[in-house]
Design a protein around this nucleic acid. Structure first.
Length: 883
DNA sequence: GCACGAAGGACCC
DNA sequence: GTCCAGGGTCCTTCGACC
């Protein structure tokens, strides 16, 4: 396909041209409201001159080159499409367009209200001397927004202050004051609620209102409502705003920008009106189509307006994934989200800071400490605990790296955050960075510091109630899943022993053996019999005796020094069939492998090892607790196991056990259950990743359990969710489409036929093999991606069938399509600062608190002097819980 | 084929 | 003279595993 004018600019102009700045694409090239009369070329030139040669500029050039390469590749792919291909994709596109058209909903009236230069207006309100003067809110490094006087010079949001100053030497800088903006934002929301109590707060300065009902009730036109609302906002705040009215949120957002500032635009709920509107609408006006997407669509397909999306739909379906193509087509049809928003949950919380690039490790550490403290404070303020910690680094050359670790327990304290953040950073050293950020995600859905849920059992009644092992509903909350392994589930059914009490006097339970202790353990092969020998000449010799026995009843899967070792099922078997008091104790075999699950952790991973031990300890405690309510079975305490994981004797025991009880014991007999991570995976990911491997390995077992008891799980989850909804003080609308994911986050089921989809990350589609060898390598500025692209394994990968391009549930996993558009145009998740979740649908955290006592308290108790009996133990746990 | 974790990127305000 | 933010969401790809 021929290149476009835009593409010619991209490709033709370089630094050596007469006007090199024309090829320097920045976000500032898009006109914002109030910038209509700006000399764009002058702005481009100044931005270019101020930037060129800098590291930022060089990085931008790299990114630009990557996108240009992508465009070239897409063009080649396009050119290689045969007539047959095009005919096929034409059919596909036409069919889908018909379906999308059929889903068009013109029944709702959405109003988008956007405050005019909000921050700047608020600052002017509080300091009238700024009136009429070019002013920007922000600093010399970055501007948050600029008033309309400044915009005449080309100054705008997201522009560095020093460039803005160059464009407008008289520019006045005012620092941001979020308290002030929040105050005024609250005032505007008071007005919004009059028209839609359930309005969607897009950010501090914008909102979406469904005014369908208010129009009906008052029998007034939407423009009157818009006028009235704007007047009300002005009366309440003294600030002006603009409004857009349209049949969906996407278009309402576009409309509110048309008569900015202090104006409004109404797009009738009429198909023809909508189609006419989008026919000439520049694609860049659409939320979700940013600089890169615009560049690509223009450069490859000559698509400049939304209407042209439809004209080129067969190419879009041919070259992009189905969701991507569908999004583009829905834009061409002027479709957007019209449904009421769902309750949303915060997904992550983060802090990041930019500073002068440095590789001073002491300084970096100091920054890390500050960030950890800030993040912890924010998390605790909101009662959040998360288990995935992500370190973000921006190098001196503006390359962004992220490194993440998913932990076994939920964290929120400065110490925990810092502990893991340091490890992540350490793995990257030496490095010169200019930004460090920390993010925590994968929340447990609990408010760690919240008042315990009344439905939650106390430690005592949890242990004594017996709920733990009944009907698979042993866990007070789905969040507990992390502490439930297949082993536990099966064990609770298998176990025929009556364990009168937990053996807290067992030093291997209460005390952790040091690595040094474990190092002394060796595994010997003796005519097919494996046994572990431990020294018995130290103070813990009696322990070792039991320890040896325990190990004898313990096995782990995988290879151990070239010897096949027994399956974990044997471990469970041993645990359930042997002595009540005999414990399966974990240890680091050869100072490297966990005897219980086979995870490999080098001795230097002290913290990880402790965590790993904690996990097994918690697991064990639960197991013991479940035994309390199981009938006792005489035990044999074998000290040795055959190397064969399915030695006849052991196998029979398992089967007998399974016959006695009706639980699902198949897993006990499954080889390779709870398998250790693949060695290559550990090697590849390096030390940091091994931390994650630890949890990842557990997840495998957890997944297995979940599958086996999925139904029960879902029932519990639904019950839990209903309870959350009942208790939810956020007054969110009931949402029948929400369900509880196993990771405890609220999510909507897929709409049967989404009217439109959010645009997926921009990726070109691989052409089917039949179309020729067009699985082209797409240039990437990312090192890893380049490696992948150059990997023949990836190059030769066949195209997935169109229909399977993306599994439906995965597509739906994007929540509900356009609402993600919602993200830009319909959702409440685009916001500034911390305001995002203050809206009506602010995420509601469930109040069930279980993780703390199920993990940390076990740990706490275990580390303390060992209680002498069960009463002591319970009292101690209760005290900890109470505290 | 699927679920998951990790990593990177696009986009929004 | 100052020299390109911070807080988010979502999507995609990849690898390993089941």
């Amino acid at each position: 396909m021929e290149g476009t004018e835009g593409a010619a600019n991209v490709d033709g102009d370089g630094d050596g041209g007469d006007r090199p700045w024309q090829s320097y694409h920045t976000v500032y090239t898009t006109a914002k409201a109030g910038m209509e009369g700006v000399d764009k070329e002058k702005v481009q030139r100044v931005v270019y001159e101020m930037s060129k040669g800098s590291k930022y500029f060089q990085n931008e050039e790299r990114k630009e080159a990557f996108i240009n390469q992508k465009i070239q590749n897409l063009r080649i792919q396009c050119a290689k499409l045969t007539q047959a291909d095009l005919a096929h994709y034409r059919k596909v596109a036409d069919r889908r367009i018909v379906e999308l058209e059929a889903s068009r909903d013109l029944s709702r009236i959405w109003l988008h209200v956007d405050m005019d230069a909000f921050y700047a207006a608020v600052e002017t309100l509080s300091n009238p001397t700024l009136q009429g003067k070019p002013m920007a809110v922000g600093s010399m490094s970055m501007i948050s927004t600029a008033n309309y006087e400044a915009r005449k010079f080309g100054v705008r949001a997201a522009m560095p202050g020093f460039i803005a100053r160059k464009l407008c030497p008289e520019l006045i800088f005012v620092p941001t004051d979020f308290k002030k903006y929040t105050y005024y934002s609250d005032l505007t929301r008071k007005v919004f609620r009059i028209y839609d109590p359930n309005f969607i707060a897009g950010s501090l300065d914008e909102a979406y209102l469904d005014i369908t009902e208010v129009c009906k009730e008052r029998n007034v036109k939407s423009e009157e409502i818009a006028q009235e609302l704007r007047a009300g906002v002005y009366e309440e705040t003294g600030l002006t705003c603009s409004a857009g009215v349209a049949p969906n949120r996407l278009l309402a957002k576009v409309c509110s920008d048309i008569n900015k500032p202090n104006g409004q635009y109404v797009l009738p709920n009429d198909r023809m009106a909508v189609m006419t509107f989008v026919s000439s609408l520049p694609i860049r006006k659409i939320g979700g189509i940013g600089k890169v997407t615009e560049h690509i669509l223009k450069g490859v397909f000559e698509i400049n307006t939304c209407e042209q999306m439809l004209e080129k739909s067969c190419y879009l379906y041919a070259l992009f994934s189905q969701p991507t193509a569908e999004f583009f087509c829905s834009v061409g049809l002027g479709l957007g989200q019209t449904d009421s928003p769902q309750v949303r949950f915060r997904k992550s919380i983060s802090n990041e800071r930019t500073f002068s690039a440095t590789e001073d490790e002491v300084l970096l550490h100091k920054k890390l400490v500050e960030l950890a403290e800030m993040l912890s404070a924010d998390m605790q303020k909101e009662g959040l605990c998360g288990r995935t910690l992500t370190l973000k680094l921006k190098t001196a050359s503006f390359e962004v790296r992220t490194r993440a670790v998913t932990l076994q327990k939920y964290i929120s304290s400065t110490e925990d955050i810092l502990k893991h953040a340091k490890k992540l950073l350490k793995a990257e050293l030496p490095i010169s960075v200019r930004l460090i950020g920390l993010r925590v995600s994968q929340f447990n859905g609990d408010k760690c510091s919240a008042t315990p849920d009344p439905t939650q059992k106390t430690i005592t009644n949890f242990i004594t109630s017996g709920d733990v092992n009944r009907n698979g509903s042993s866990f007070p909350d789905v969040a507990d899943r992390d502490f439930v392994s297949d082993a536990e589930t099966n064990l609770s059914v298998d176990n025929q022993q009556q364990t009168s009490q937990l053996d807290w006097r067992d030093p291997f339970v209460g005390n952790y053996l040091s690595d040094g202790d474990y190092q002394s353990c060796v595994l010997q092969k003796n005519d097919g019999i494996e046994e572990v020998q431990t020294p018995s000449n130290d103070a813990t010799s009696s322990h070792h005796s039991g320890f040896t026995e325990a190990l004898g009843s313990t096995s782990f899967q995988g290879q151990f020094e070239g010897i096949n070792v027994m399956n974990e099922s044997k471990l469970l078997e041993g645990a359930s069939l042997n002595s009540c008091c005999q414990e399966t104790t974990m240890l680091w075999l050869n100072d490297y492998k966990c005897s219980l699950c086979g995870i490999e952790l080098p001795p230097s991973f002290v913290e990880e090892r402790l965590e790993h031990s904690d996990f097994h300890l918690a697991e064990k405690l639960q197991k013991e607790e479940s035994r309390i309510h199981q009938p006792c079975v005489p035990s044999g305490s074998p000290k040795r196991y055959r190397r064969d994981a399915y030695g006849k004797e052991e196998k029979e025991r398992v089967e007998n056990s399974a016959n006695v009880h009706n639980g699902d014991h198949r897993r006990l007999n499954e080889p390779n259950h709870q398998r250790a991570p693949h060695p290559t995976q550990q090697e590849k990911r390096g030390s940091i990743a091994q931390v994650g491997q630890s949890s990842g390995q557990r997840k495998a077992g957890e997944r297995g359990w979940w599958k086996d008891t999925r139904k029960q799980f879902n029932e519990r989850a639904e019950t839990s969710h209903r309870r959350e909804q009942r208790d939810d003080k956020s007054q969110a609308k009931p949402d029948d489409n929400t369900f509880q994911r196993r990771d405890d986050f609220s999510e909507r089921k897929d709409d049967p036929l989404p009217t439109s989809r959010k645009r997926p990350a921009f990726r070109e589609k691989r052409i089917p093999v039949e179309s020729g060898d067009v699985n082209l390598v797409v240039g990437r500025n990312d090192r890893k991606k380049e490696e992948r692209s150059n990997n023949p394994q990836h190059l030769g990968r066949p195209e997935k069938p169109f229909a399977d391009d993306r599994a439906p549930n995965k597509v739906g996993g994007r929540r509900d399509g356009f609402p993600s558009r919602g993200r830009r145009y319909g959702g409440n998740d685009s916001y500034r600062g911390r305001d995002k979740f203050n809206g009506r649908q602010g995420y509601s955290l469930d109040k069930i608190q279980t993780e703390k006592w199920k993990h940390d308290l076990y740990q706490d108790v275990s580390k303390d002097p060992i209680p002498q009996n069960e009463d002591d133990k319970i009292a101690k746990l209760e005290a900890l819980l109470a505290s």
